[in-house]
Amino acid sequence: MEAPRDLAFEAWTKPEHLSKWWGPQGFTSTFQKFELQPGGTWEFVMHSPDGVDFPNTNVFDEIVQPERIVFRHTVFPHFVAKATFEEINGQTKLTYRTVFEETEAVFEKVKTYAAPGAEQTLDRLEELLAQLVNRTSGHSQQ
């Protein structure tokens, strides 16, 4: 990611940034609770472009600024997610992994939307980071 590690980590940990990019293309999110601490809860509703709401609850297991975030998605589909942030020459290498706890048969169905959804979500993160980098470096057009 063409952004400093601190900024990339901030995009994951500040609700005003996270709400702008979390979810596939066309989705929006309404955050109800965001307790960024081990054992803290992140509750939100993802709203699809066709009007379907998807309630989500995550529990943070680990927050190590600016290195990693680990959380459990406690509603279907159940998974543990880990995001790691590595600084390389002023930019950020983000590694995002999820381990699903569903049966193999259920996972076969889930991955048809989970993998493309995760890719679109991370694309949205890159777009937001480009805007934030522009804003902080004074390159925005006014």
Score class of each variant (00 low, 15 high):
residue 22 W to S: 03
residue 29 S to W: 07
residue 99 V to N: 02
residue 49 P to R: 02
residue 120 Q to K: 10
residue 104 E to Y: 04
residue 127 E to R: 12
residue 54 F to G: 10
residue 73 H to W: 08
residue 39 G to A: 04
residue 68 R to D: 06
residue 107 F to A: 05
residue 101 E to H: 11
residue 119 E to G: 12
residue 110 V to K: 10
residue 81 A to H: 10
residue 76 F to D: 11
residue 134 N to H: 13
residue 16 E to T: 02
residue 71 F to E: 03
residue 45 V to E: 04
residue 1 M to G: 14
residue 114 A to S: 15
residue 70 V to G: 11
residue 78 H to S: 10
residue 60 F to Y: 14
residue 113 Y to M: 13
residue 17 H to D: 01
residue 132 L to M: 13
residue 1 M to N: 11
residue 30 T to N: 09
residue 67 E to S: 15
residue 45 V to F: 06
residue 94 L to H: 04
residue 33 K to G: 01
residue 82 K to N: 15
residue 124 R to H: 12
residue 96 Y to R: 10
residue 66 P to A: 04
residue 7 L to V: 12
residue 133 V to H: 03
residue 25 Q to T: 09
residue 103 T to Q: 04
residue 131 Q to M: 08
residue 123 D to Q: 15
residue 119 E to R: 14
residue 47 H to F: 05
residue 84 T to H: 02
residue 28 T to A: 08
residue 111 K to T: 06
residue 37 Q to A: 13
residue 86 E to H: 06
residue 75 V to F: 07
residue 19 S to N: 07
residue 53 D to T: 01
residue 125 L to M: 09
residue 58 N to F: 15
residue 10 E to Q: 13
residue 9 F to T: 03
residue 57 T to C: 11
residue 30 T to C: 06
residue 94 L to S: 01
residue 73 H to R: 01
residue 118 A to V: 03
residue 76 F to Q: 09
residue 71 F to W: 14
residue 70 V to N: 06
residue 80 V to N: 09
residue 107 F to V: 08
residue 129 L to W: 07
residue 134 N to S: 12
residue 136 T to D: 11
residue 136 T to K: 11
residue 41 T to C: 11
residue 63 I to A: 08
residue 49 P to F: 05
residue 90 G to N: 01
residue 28 T to R: 07
residue 40 G to A: 04
residue 139 H to M: 09
residue 50 D to P: 00
residue 97 R to S: 15
residue 99 V to H: 03
residue 16 E to V: 07
residue 140 S to L: 13
residue 139 H to R: 11
residue 84 T to W: 02
residue 41 T to Y: 01
residue 110 V to Q: 09
residue 39 G to W: 04
residue 3 A to Y: 05
residue 70 V to P: 07
residue 119 E to S: 11
residue 32 Q to L: 08
residue 138 G to P: 07
residue 95 T to P: 10
residue 137 S to M: 08
residue 17 H to S: 01
residue 19 S to I: 14
residue 65 Q to L: 07
residue 16 E to R: 01
residue 92 T to D: 09
residue 93 K to A: 08
residue 118 A to C: 05
residue 7 L to T: 04
residue 27 F to E: 06
residue 121 T to R: 08
residue 116 P to W: 02
residue 140 S to K: 13
residue 3 A to Q: 01
residue 77 P to Y: 03
residue 12 W to D: 00
residue 49 P to S: 04
residue 58 N to Y: 14
residue 35 E to P: 00
residue 19 S to E: 10
residue 11 A to R: 00
residue 32 Q to S: 06
residue 41 T to E: 12
residue 131 Q to C: 05
residue 77 P to N: 09
residue 79 F to Y: 14
residue 51 G to S: 12
residue 7 L to N: 03
residue 21 W to P: 00
residue 59 V to T: 07
